[in-house]
Nucleic acid binder design. Structure first.
Lengths: 133, 133
DNA sequence: ACGAGTTAATTGTACCAGCAACTACCAGCC
DNA sequence: GGCTGGTAGTTGCTGGTACAATTAACTCGT
């Protein structure tokens, strides 16, 4: 718990310093950047992030006001929507990426050996998957 | 990030269900339980927990109102104080401990093999120490 | 084709956390 | 001894998050 908070807080500071975005919101952009260009459903985005659905709604509100993402209608489900990066959002993400990876290194990866990283990656994926179930 | 949030949220739910205390507050009791009976300085307690100094002040307020801990004057520093468990706090902690360990197993340890646990314990300790520096 | 039950997303509310500013106290130096 | 710089803990304030209840739309059985 202490370690995870230390990493999260350090990353959050760096993220804010780099592009003014809290870590959670930067992470949303990153997830969107890896997804299809058509966008991602809010529920899926919440599951891939650290937010609940309600938290996601507010975060999307903020990012939309900032012009970094947009809500599109979902063609296959009238209730739903698709969240997608705008051109500006894509640009912000690309610009911030190098510093973001450096921050990961500084706060986390640099403390680990190569085999430790492999072990931990597997463990974290298993736990995240279990949390989703 | 996703994995750590999953574990933390799961543990928090279980902690609240078990003794009505949020995970962060239960954790404070646990840290106090492992420390000397004379108590721990707030600054040290904050460093050993997931809270900042200001967050710790409020958490201590709540736990003190609940009668689980008490603030004592610090003999060696007139500004400072010593936070210590009350008898009631010790009792609550002892009663909740078994379920707390089961929760750790359920949400975290059961997903890992024995060597993975050893690796991760070392890594987390290193990172927590780096965060303290 | 219609209704019951389910799921997607939002909103009202309450709470918790952090930052920055503040007060009180300590320590070291002249 | 008194002054200067630093440390311990608290408080005003703001913002973010979750929970629970709500609205709208989908799905399946008949």
């Amino acid at each position: 718990m202490v370690a995870s908070v230390a990493v999260t807080r350090g990353m959050d500071r760096d993220s804010q310093a780099a592009n003014g975005l809290p870590l959670a919101e930067h992470h949303l952009l990153a997830v969107l950047g890896e997804g299809p260009d058509t966008g991602i459903r809010p529920t899926d985005l919440a599951a891939a992030s650290t937010l609940t659905k309600s938290g996601l709604t507010r975060a999307v509100d903020r990012l939309e006001s900032a012009g970094l993402i947009e809500r599109r209608e979902c063609p296959s489900d009238g209730r739903g929507q698709l969240i997608a990066l705008t051109a500006k959002g894509r640009q912000v993400l690309r610009r911030a990426a190098p510093e973001f990876f450096r921050a990961i290194a500084r706060h986390f990866a640099d403390h680990l050996t190569e085999p430790e990283i492999e072990t931990i990656t597997g463990v974290f994926e298993r736990i995240a998957a279990a949390g989703r179930a």
